[in-house]
């Protein structure tokens, strides 16, 4: 859950260029120096990433990064079997999809009255939501475990989904309300005049207009759940229910120190969907999508 708040800023990542209007004689040399420093930092970020890619194609991969002497797909072939990869990936899809779906549906329902009506408790509710986005969920896992013992929800995929949906809700409601605020209320008023009730107005007018926003929130919750290791690690016991994050950890514990190539190949298979979804969100939000509200702070 650590990057729970982080994906918000995807939307702030617009690079607006402003032409330099005051000509500076040292401009080009300064540009060279900063390019050099930037390259050095870039290499530091690149090296650990390259290790994953190279090792996954290396038949004799070790912990140090090196170009494979013999490029091979053997590592991928080794890990691509039902128990080790496909079932955990399916479990990841089920958990992430369930979490995202519940969060978006419940979040949209909650965001609607918060966005459309003035209510006395609205401000305190929004502050409580904001407070919830800041709580360290990882610190909560021990009491969550005890709570799940009492609720008899341990080792239940549904339990994991409900918990992850609840912990994603504060950020989702916050984002969805801001998206909804940007849909003009006058359109709904026209619908009300025609006799639509508020839920019909929400379904037929507001939601279609905020489709990109719904996509952004859905993918945001989906990827957060996809990358979450700690929650299923604590709450699930049966190997056939493990999502990829937990199964890859167990693989690392059992074979990691002898089969780094396979570990890397598994990591690539597990990480690729997340990277693709991130790119998709960037596309959806057009890169310059001012989801100002989520980082309004």
């Amino acid at each position: 859950m650590t990057d729970r708040t982080s994906t918000i800023s995807i939307v702030t990542q617009r690079e607006r260029e402003r032409p330099i209007t005051v000509a500076s004689p040292r401009k080009s040399s300064a540009k060279l120096v900063s390019s050099l420093i930037l390259s050095a930092i870039g290499i530091l970020f690149l090296v650990p990433l390259l290790w994953i890619v190279f090792s996954s194609f290396d038949e004799s991969a070790t912990v140090s990064m090196s170009l494979p002497e013999h490029w091979t797909l053997d590592n991928y072939a080794q890990v691509m079997n039902w128990d080790q990869t496909w079932l955990p990936l399916l479990n990841s899809i089920a958990i992430s999809f369930g979490t995202a779906l519940i969060t978006v549906v419940v979040g949209v329902l909650a965001a609607y009255p918060l966005s459309r009506y003035r209510m006395r408790f609205q401000r305190s509710f929004m502050y409580a939501i904001l407070f919830g986005t800041g709580l360290p969920i990882t610190a909560m896992m021990v009491p969550v475990y005890s709570l799940f013992v009492s609720l008899k929800l341990l080792d239940s995929t549904w339990g994991v989904i409900l918990f992850m949906a609840a912990t994603s809700l504060p950020m989702a409601i916050w984002m969805l309300k801001n998206f909804m605020d940007s849909v003009p209320i006058s359109l709904e008023e026209a619908a009300w005049v025609d006799g639509a009730n508020s839920m019909q107005a929400l379904g037929r007018i507001v939601l279609p207009l905020m489709r990109p926003g719904l996509g952004v929130v859905f993918i945001f919750v989906f990827t957060t759940a996809w990358g979450n290791f700690f929650v299923p690690f604590v709450l699930l016991f049966s190997a056939d229910k493990f999502p990829a994050a937990v199964s890859i950890f167990n693989f690392f514990g059992q074979y990691g120190s002898i089969a780094y190539g396979q570990l890397a190949a598994y990591s690539v298979l597990y990480a690729t969907p997340m990277v693709l979804l991130y790119v998709l969100v960037q596309r959806l939000s057009g890169g310059a999508f001012a989801l100002a509200g989520s980082v309004k702070g």
């Binding site: 650590t2 990057d3 982080s6 990542q13 930037l38 390259s39 930092i41 870039g42 970020f45 690149l46 090296v47 650990p48 990433l49 290790w51 994953i52 090792s55 912990v63 140090s64 990064m65 996809w226 990358g227 290791f229 994050a245 890859i248 950890f249 690392f252 990691g256 780094y260 570990l263 890397a264 990591s267 597990y270 990480a271 997340m274 990277v275 991130y278």
Partner: peptide, 23 residues
């Protein structure tokens, strides 16, 4: 470089942890 820095952050935490463990 911007893309590399963001990639390190988009990766699942556990994959980033493996990469740095190896490093």
């Amino acid at each position: 470089v911007g893309g590399l820095v963001v990639l390190a952050w988009v990766l699942p935490e556990i994959v980033a942890a493996f990469a740095l463990y190896a490093f």
